[in-house]
Simulated assay, not measured.
Amino acid sequence: MKLIYKLLILVTVLSACETDDEIERRDGSLPRMDCIDIEDERGIIAEYTNEAGFILLPEEACPVFRIDGDFKTEENYLDLWICNLPEEFQQDSLEVIFSGYLYETFENENVCAQLFELSEIELRQ
């Protein structure tokens, strides 16, 4: 479990360093969900724009950075697993405004948060 936790943190930190992806999105290209290593194509099921939330640190039950807030689907409330959270935002309970894409989760997956790719994030005033 600790190895998985460390690998997820490493992937998150490394992906936060990529700036080309941000520039492409501002130019209007589609998100690619390339901030984590996945083999299967995932569809975008929602787009969030200028949503308020707060950062949750990895923990034993869910070893990934997440955004918590009032995000509801038909089934339940969601925590969003931020696959590309910049390092400067990796602080517990940090209040943020963000935009990005929610990706589908497959039926056979047991996840603690929904896959989410940021397109923008800033501190909430």
Rank of each mutant, 00 (worst) to 15 (best):
Arg32Ser: 02
Ala52Pro: 05
Leu78Val: 10
Phe98Ile: 06
Phe98Ala: 06
Ala46Leu: 04
Glu104Val: 02
Glu120Cys: 02
Thr73Asp: 12
Glu24Ile: 13
Leu94Phe: 10
Tyr101Arg: 07
Asp79His: 15
Leu78Gly: 06
Phe89Glu: 02
Gln114Phe: 08
Leu14Phe: 03
Ile45Arg: 04
Asp68His: 13
Lys6Leu: 03
Arg26His: 06
Ala46Pro: 01
Cys35His: 10
Phe116Tyr: 02
Tyr101Gln: 11
Asp68Gln: 08
Phe54Cys: 12
Tyr103Met: 03
Asp70Gln: 15
Leu30Ile: 05
Gln114Glu: 06
Glu104Asp: 04
Ile38Gly: 12
Glu120Arg: 05
Ile23Gln: 06
Arg124Gln: 12
Asp40Lys: 13
Glu122Asp: 06
Gly53Thr: 11
Asn108Trp: 06
Gln90Tyr: 02
Arg32Phe: 05
Pro86Ala: 12
Glu59Met: 15
Pro31Gly: 04
Arg66Asn: 11
Ile44Trp: 00
Arg25Asn: 07
Ala16Thr: 08
Ile121Gly: 00
Asp68Met: 12
Thr73Ile: 13
Val96Ser: 07
Lys72Gly: 13
Tyr77Asn: 13
Glu74Met: 14
Glu41Asn: 07
Ala52Asn: 11
Leu57Trp: 04
Asp34Ser: 06
Ile9Ala: 10
Pro31Thr: 06
Arg32Lys: 13
Thr73Met: 09
Ile36Gly: 03
Leu123His: 07
Cys83Trp: 03
Ala61Trp: 11
Pro86Gln: 01
Asn76Glu: 06
Val96Gly: 11
Cys17Ala: 09
Met33Ser: 06
Leu14Asn: 09
Gly28Thr: 04
Tyr77Trp: 13
Leu94His: 08
Gly53Asp: 09
Cys62Asp: 14
Asn108Val: 11
Phe54Pro: 08
Gln125Arg: 12
Met33Pro: 01
Ser119Gly: 05
Asp70Ile: 15
